[in-house]
Design a protein around this nucleic acid. Structure first.
Lengths: 159, 159
DNA sequence: TCGAGAATCTCGATTGTCGAGACATTACAG
DNA sequence: CTGTAATGTCTCGACAATCGAGATTCTCGA
C-alpha cells in the first residue's frame, strides 16, 4: 500500500523511535510528579555535568527552546525538587550557575540506566562495522535536523 | 574524557537526534501558532490516513498519552484550525471519526516534506546493505523503548 | 564615567492539561 | 428480553506551565 522507497521507510522508522522515547519520558515524568520539560532539562543538565559544561539558566533555556520567564519557573521547580542548586557566578555576577545535585543523578539513572542498559545489550547483535555505519547514519540525520533548525531560527529572527 | 564504550556513544547520539527533531517540531509549532501536542497529533493523524487506520479521539489520545479531557480540547483546536472534521460513526454511535482535511495534509507536508527530502538525500551516501543494517538497528531500539513502556504502563495500572 | 548590551527575574494573562464525573451507546449475562 | 457492566466522548472546575513585556542588576568598551 505504501513505501516502496527504503529511504522513506527509514525516516518513518526514525520518527517512530523518537515517538516511543518521548512517550517513555512522558510516562516517567508523570510517575515522578514532574513535567515533560523537567525531564528534558534533566537530560541536558546531566549531559552538561558529564561533559564539564557550566550550566546556566540562559544556556538551559536555549537548549530547551523556552523563553526566559519559563526558564526561571523551570529552575524554580528543579530547585524546589532538590535536583539543582543556584549559585552566583563570582566572575560574572549577572550569571547564575546551576549545580546538579546528587539526587538528580540518582533520579536520572533510575530512568535512563535500565533503558541504556537494554539498548546496549541489543547492540551486541551488531558487529563493529555495523555500529560504525549506524553511527554515521545518526550523525547525518542529526546534522540535517540541526542545520534545518538553525536556518529556520535565522529566518524568523530576521523579521 | 568519557565514553570509551561505542554502545553508550550510540545511545547518546540517538538521543541527540530525538532532541533535535523535537526542537524542530516545536519551532514549527510556534511558527504556525499551534502547540507541540498539536504537531504530534498531526503526525499520528497523517500516519493513520496513510495507513488506512480510522482515527477516533480515543485512539488519538492513546497515541499521545493524554487523558480524555485533553483529547477533547485537542480535537476542538484541530477542528477550529480546519485540520480535522468530526464525524459520527454510523456503526457505533458512541464513536467519533476524525476526518483529516486537505489543509492538514498541506500543512504537514510544508514541514515534513523538505525535512524528509533532505534526509532521504543524505541516505544516498549509504548502500543497500548499510541501510538494511540501520533499519535493523532502529527496529531494535524502537522495540526496546516500546517494550519498556508497556511494562511500566502495566505496573502502574496494577495499583 | 557613562551607556549599550547581557543575564536573570517579576508580573499578569493565556491556555493546555488533569481528575472526576455526566451522558449516550453498546455488549453481555441471566 | 431486560437490566447491568463496559465503552467512547464530552463537560466542568482547578491547576500550573508558558508566554510577552518590562524591571533589575551587572559587565565591558568607548
Amino acid at each position: 500500500m505504501d513505501d516502496q522507497d527504503p529511504g522513506l521507510q527509514l525516516v518513518h522508522l526514525l520518527r517512530a523511535v523518537t515517538v516511543e522515547l518521548d512517550l517513555l519520558a512522558a510516562e516517567f515524568a508523570g510517575r515522578e510528579g514532574l513535567h515533560p520539560t523537567d525531564v528534558r532539562a534533566l537530560i541536558h543538565l546531566l549531559d552538561a555535568g558529564r561533559e564539564g559544561v557550566r550550566a546556566t539558566p540562559g544556556w538551559l533555556g536555549a537548549q530547551l527552546g523556552v523563553n526566559s520567564a519559563s526558564t526561571t519557573a523551570l529552575v524554580d521547580r528543579l530547585e524546589r525538587l532538590g535536583l539543582v542548586r543556584r549559585e552566583r557566578d563570582t566572575r560574572d555576577r549577572r550569571r547564575v550557575l546551576l549545580v546538579v545535585q546528587d539526587q538528580a543523578v540518582t533520579l536520572g539513572w533510575s530512568f535512563f540506566g535500565p533503558l541504556i542498559h537494554e539498548m546496549v545489550a541489543e547492540m551486541r547483535a551488531f558487529d563493529e562495522t555495523e555500529l560504525a555505519t549506524v553511527r554515521r547514519f545518526l550523525l547525518a540525520m542529526r546534522d540535517v535536523a540541526a542545520t534545518r533548525r538553525r536556518a529556520q531560527q535565522d529566518s524568523s529572527a530576521r523579521r
